[in-house]
Design a protein around this nucleic acid. Structure first.
Lengths: 151, 151
DNA sequence: AATATATCAACATAAATTTATAGGAATTAT
DNA sequence: ATAATTCCTATAAATTTATGTTGATATATT
């Protein structure tokens, strides 16, 4: 019903992946590796990373030894920035961004409901950064190592 | 990026429309009228109302003089019920409903982020009822009447 | 200088899902 | 009987999701 698109999901995972490498070294990360680690095809990643580059969330380095790196520190990249870059909006329904989208706004009983939900989400994603995602991620990985899967 | 589907949007508007008639009389409302008032095709409304009927949010009366009526009072129908009926879930990503959907959950840094957002939304839609939508709607309509559009 | 590695770009296409329309069968009040 | 209405199934159109192809461009390594 309310679904985050694959672009949003994959794009965020791509950014978290870059953030992990960013922390370990400043070497650029190649999409081939991201593809293998995240299980997303390179072709699709190529399409998804374009808006992230346009919005200056990542930098590309061409040629052999090239790849992608974060344009800023993980603490300075909000999840909201990523979602916004990947589709230009974070609103649940078109009419919130574009009031001409639906002529019934003036008497619609649902408009305010979707607007409230959109603001909740926007506020939530404004407060979260890549750093938060990174910390969640590393916590889970180290927990998985300490408690190795039996059987 | 994060979009409410037309089923969710139209279905909720359909329910608000029924709620308005519910208040005024107990006569069943026909989809033809809803279609004209909401600007949504009858054929599409017919499809959308099926899950609402299955989930006992509306009752249908067949034949001439038939139509649809709310199964319960507007105060007793949560927006969450409607959204849930229309797709079986209110979660932003599949993996929250179905943990087998993605094998990377154990180490994914984004899972908790989407889960948090989903819970925010769910909590929000749990607290809102059709009655709330109805009140917003009537407030707007009476405001529009008092202050008629000049020009 | 040649080679290998990557991004970059512009397409094309295919599969899946969502959105929307269409035709007619079944049911019921009048 | 007739008209009104839901109910059921099919299909069309649009969009999203994903892969494939070809080749240009940039750069590190040999």
């Amino acid at each position: 019903m309310i679904k985050l698109s694959t672009k949003g999901r994959y794009g965020t995972r791509l950014m978290v992946n870059l953030a992990r490498h960013y922390k370990n070294s400043n070497e650029p990360t190649i999409l081939k590796n991201v593809s293998e680690e995240e299980g997303i095809s390179i072709r699709y990643l190529e399409q998804i990373i374009i808006p992230l580059k346009i919005n200056r969330l990542v930098k590309s380095i061409r040629g052999a030894g090239g790849g992608y790196i974060l344009a800023r520190k993980p603490t300075e990249i909000k999840i909201c920035d990523i979602l916004h870059a990947l589709e230009g909006s974070c609103s649940l329904v078109e009419c919130i961004e574009d009031e001409t989208f639906c002529e019934k706004i003036k008497t619609c009983g649902t408009y305010e409901i979707w607007k409230g939900a959109t603001e909740l989400l926007r506020n939530y994603f404004e407060k979260l950064t890549l750093q938060d995602a990174l910390e969640i991620c590393e916590k889970k990985i180290s927990a998985a190592k300490k408690r190795p899967k039996i059987k």
